[in-house]
Amino acid sequence: MVEEKKEYWRWTEGLYLNKDIDWRKAKSITLGVDIGSVSTQAVVLTDGKIYCFASIRTGSDSPDSARKAVESALKQTDLKQENIHYTVGTGYGRVNIPFANKTVTEIACHARGANYMGGPTIRTILDMGGQDCKAIQCDERGKVVQFLMNDKCAAGTGRGMEVIANLMAVPITDIGRLSFEIDKEPPPVSSTCVVFAKTEAIGLMREGWTKNQVLAAYCSAMAHRVVTLLQRVGVNKDFTITGGIAKNIGVTRRILNELKVDMVQLQPDPQIAGGVGASLFAADLLEKQRKAAG
């Protein structure tokens, strides 16, 4: 009998619509599209408020991913793409968004989005993306003051977590919870490379470690790795985490424990911070464009 092959790495795609908003009354309708290596978000703001968004998996084709994300966000409403006044693209795929008026880097967008969602007291943002991590410091307006990125290795990123989910045959959304269902916190896996971490995890299982212990050791290693990055840039309060890994308590709680700080939880979804920031930049640029046009 052939065992069914499960895709444990598949995280839940997200949709949101604020039904209290009537987009027809809005003077400004802006779209931010954040194409990352693992996920793509499309966020629509009407007069500076989140109206709807979609968060989907990025495919192999950036323009197609952008289109799909926008379609997903808009299919919840009768708002059409032609009704959108201005679009800003961000993320690694930003240059491949055919309908974007302008591009802005995701570092600037995550800072701006975190400032909007978490408030003006946010000073340090950890963006844990699919392919890299960024430690960002910003001012009270969400303007980037300083930032650092990890190197191009996938360890400590969403993609690394996906690999571990498949390897351990644990749904990615359960990893955080299960990583705490242990008697004693194990030492973190030692490798900083996702390929070797995988090998190491297999070795630990052979030694008799439970699945949850291995998950804990991997979450712990990932947390420790980004804490080092954060310490290089400095952690000022308030602190928050954006990106998909922000939803994994196995990593976030361990980061907070190590740093001995609290974090501001971003609502409605920390994964959309880049898209929100892009949409906010779009609103600024729209206003500038309108002023210039008289």
Binding site: V104, T105, I107, A108, K143, V144, V145, Q146, F147, M149
Partner: peptide, 8 residues
């Protein structure tokens, strides 16, 4: 990284 630095 470079574009972010220039923006900053």
């Amino acid at each position: 990284r470079i574009e972010s630095f220039m923006e900053s």
